[in-house]
Design a binder for these strands. Structure first.
Length: 566
DNA sequence: GCGCCTTTGAAGTGT
DNA sequence: ACACTTCAAAGGCGC
């Protein structure tokens, strides 16, 4: 399918970028941008401070890695839609506080020269660093590892080597009306296993318990449910009036319905049809109906935009599409994102009302066993041999491997370190770097998950290496960014792997120049004590063996190979 | 047929 | 309080 932009978003690349710039250029935004740049930097460094500034409105999810998102909204100033913005937490955990992040793009741009090519891959679709700042509203782009990194635009490289160019800012703007309309589409929850009812609710309607008749659950979706008084005109009818919505939303409708349908399917467990249950009456005797989690803002956005993206690119793989959507999500304006947050909030609210006793925990372990390995591994890592003193670990035969103190029959530093319970890998792990470090970084599962972890600690950024795209892009050791906060190092690393020819073709975009690959990033020596490759690392300094082989070497997923940069 | 991949966010568990 | 994990959607892909 040709790269069409029926939506008017048209040029997925350039146009959108321009838009972004425009955004920033807007006086206020711009101001904030520069102001916040600094603020942002420090914010990440000192979250507490930011929180203070923001009124403590950061998400309860304190993942630092995620936290960097919060600022996005944390920055949002109660704008036109103040009313909704003032919903406080309800609005979203990231309650538009005046946090730090925010439009740092301008700032980034300013830094551009300093970091030529810095965030290039992500926000510089055209390879022009200056043209690709993260969206103004974004604040700290996700995975921008740390404040300093922020300036460097150290972003998380997608697994799928899309070039930024592929992630044009679709900008809902032209389509916002559609989007807005789509928000009026019913949100569905499988209220009744049999009916697979998805209860619609108006976006604008403040949901109160009273407003949600319990009977609601029993009726089939669209037809039987009388529109709530507060329902928007299209409310429940959207499904039947696709005309109301433009392509985007239109697509969504089926989508939502699909979800609905799926929900029903999911409820196959629910033995029958009648287990509706939110009260989980006896019908659920055999199995509790599987009540899905309410969709979060991004999920809602994805559902809505997926079709569009799919249409724009010929890509079909959800993983790839999701990457694009992730980018787009960040490119959305604050207001636009806010709308999704609002919608998500309402979803949660409704969900809560529909399933008062439901807890996300209920879904834990639903249908999968995956990730157990992780735990096992973790246990092994934390426990195991690594905890032993050198003597126990290596035995008398391998005294050469003992740490010096051990050799001198003194306190085993490795043992002590591990015993410290320090999170890091500097301890035994580190020491254990021989085995465990590698392991620690290797497991594919760890990539994503421990990503946040690694990112959370500036020094542990090496985890980023796991983010290397399949294309074998070299990721700089995050430590670099840590090391030189203000400058350098990062730029070259912002790698986004260029599109593969195939991918480029898929999205009708030219593959990004592989220039980034040409600058092997170099870590300033000794910047990250956690970095096993760091000659000055604890490992090295303590005479521990260092595992140089790519941490991922043992990884299960070849596509996530980690290339350690030394 | 099932799990992985990939994204963000919410909410859970664990320390 | 913080770190980490799971799940939500989606659909191609590999085993």
């Amino acid at each position: 399918m040709p790269h069409v932009s029926s939506s008017g978003g048209d040029d997925l690349c350039s146009t959108d970028e321009v838009k972004v710039f425009k955004d920033e250029g807007d006086g206020e935004d711009e101001k904030r941008s520069s102001e916040n740049l600094t603020e942002e930097k420090s914010s990440l460094i000192d979250l507490t401070e930011s929180e203070e500034k923001s009124g403590g409105n950061y998400s309860s999810n304190k993942h630092v890695s995620r936290a960097d998102h919060s600022p996005v909204f944390g920055k949002v100033e109660p704008a036109p839609h103040t009313s909704s913005f003032n919903m406080g937490y309800l609005m979203s955990p990231y309650s538009y506080a005046n946090g730090a992040a925010g439009p740092i793009q301008a700032g980034k741009m300013g830094l551009g020269p300093t970091h030529p090519g810095a965030a290039l891959p992500f926000f510089c679709p055209n390879g022009d660093p200056l043209s690709q700042p993260p969206p103004a509203h974004m604040g700290i782009p996700p995975y921008q590892l740390d404040g300093k990194a922020g300036t460097m635009g150290l972003t998380r490289p997608p697994m799928y080597p899309f070039s930024a160019g592929q992630y044009p800012y679709p900008m809902l703007s032209p389509d916002m009306s559609q989007v807005a309309a789509s928000w009026h589409t019913p949100s569905m929850y499988p209220l009744s296993p049999s009916a697979g009812f998805r209860s619609p609710y108006p976006t604008t309607l403040p949901i109160s318990t009273s407003s949600l008749p319990t009977d609601l659950y029993r009726f089939s979706p669209t037809s039987l449910i009388p529109p709530h008084p507060g329902l928007s005109p299209h409310g429940p009818h959207l499904g039947s009036h696709p005309a109301i919505v433009t392509p985007g939303p239109k697509q969504e409708l089926p989508d939502l319905n699909h979800r609905y349908a799926r929900a029903q399917i999911d409820q196959k467990n629910n033995v029958g049809d009648n287990k509706n249950n939110q009260d989980g009456t006896n019908a659920g005797e055999k199995k509790k109906p599987h009540i899905k989690k309410p969709l979060n803002a991004f999920m809602l956005y994805m559902k809505e935009m997926r079709a569009k993206v799919v249409a724009e690119c010929t890509l079909k793989e959800s993983a790839a599409i999701n990457q694009i959507l992730g980018r787009r999500w960040h490119s959305l304006s604050r207001e636009e994102q806010a709308k999704y947050y609002e919608k998500a909030r309402q979803e949660r609210q409704l969900h809560m009302q529909l399933y008062p006793g439901w807890s996300a925990r209920d879904n834990y372990g639903y249908g999968t066993k995956k990730k157990k390995r992780k735990k096992e591994r973790t246990t092994v890592e934390s426990g195991g041999n690594n905890m032993k003193k050198c003597r126990a670990r290596y035995g008398l035969d391998q005294q050469s491997q003992w740490c010096k103190p051990c050799r001198r029959k003194k306190k085993c530093i490795r043992y002590l370190e591990s015993g410290d319970g320090n999170d890091g890998n500097q301890s035994d792990d580190n020491l254990g770097s021989c085995g465990s470090v590698g392991d620690a970084h290797t497991p594919p599962e760890e990539d994503g998950e421990s990503l946040s972890q690694s990112m959370s600690s500036p020094g542990a950024l090496s985890g980023l290496s796991s983010l290397t795209s399949p294309g074998g892009i070299i990721l700089p050791s995050p430590s670099t960014s840590v090391a030189s906060p203000s400058v350098s190092a990062a730029s070259p690393y912002m790698l986004q792997s260029p599109l593969t020819p195939h991918e480029a073709f898929e999205c009708k975009l030219p593959p990004a120049p592989p220039l980034l690959h040409q600058q092997p990033p170099r870590n300033p020596v000794g910047t990250n004590p956690h970095d096993i490759n760091n000659p000055l690392s604890v490992n090295q300094l303590t005479g521990q063996c260092v595992k140089n082989e790519p941490p991922d070497g043992g990884g299960k997923d070849p596509t996530r190979s980690i290339i350690s940069v030394t």
